[in-house]
């Protein structure tokens, strides 16, 4: 069940397309891979970010590829040379998305960052970790 929260999602339109250089393309068969947006902004750290991500990729030859979020396949393409898909995504932390084939070979990866409007404020702990032991 989706939490209906009032997160403020700011979509970064700057340099949205991840070029082969910044998309860390591992296999030369893949010539293009991008995820938009690259940044999701929430009210405060720990809030869940819900966004519609646009995923695009292009390969030299048809391939079976899947988009993976935290080891979970969230969308797959069968025997395609290119793909474009808008996918609903939920994030709690900065997350790495990868494009893999049937043999789990990673073709490309891209991070989607989470930023918070309210900066995380920390202070020094006055007791040490597990000091109760």
């Amino acid at each position: 069940m989706y939490l209906h929260v009032k997160w403020i999602i700011i979509i970064s339109f700057l340099s949205i397309t991840a070029s082969p250089a910044n998309a860390n393309i591992i296999n030369t068969k893949l010539s293009f891979f991008s995820i938009k947006p690259l940044t999701c902004v929430v009210q405060k750290i720990g809030d869940t970010c819900q966004l519609m991500a646009t995923v695009r990729w292009k390969a030299d030859i048809p391939a079976n590829l899947c988009l993976v979020q935290d080891e979970t396949k969230i969308y797959c393409w069968k025997n395609k040379k290119m793909g474009t898909q808008v996918i609903p995504i939920e994030l709690k932390d900065t997350t790495n998305f990868t494009l893999i084939d049937d043999g789990n070979t990673v073709f490309a990866s891209q991070k989607v960052n989470i930023n918070a409007i309210q900066p995380t404020k920390t202070r020094r702990r006055l007791r040490s970790a597990w000091s109760i032991f």
Binding site: G46, T120, K121, T122, R123, R124, R125, S128, A129
Partner: peptide, 19 residues
């Protein structure tokens, strides 16, 4: 780094083991 803690956030941990 466990010497710093986030302000305004409840931190809850459970230790399981033998002792």
């Amino acid at each position: 780094d466990e010497s710093l803690i986030t302000v305004g956030q409840l931190h809850f941990s459970v230790a399981m083991g033998i002792g």
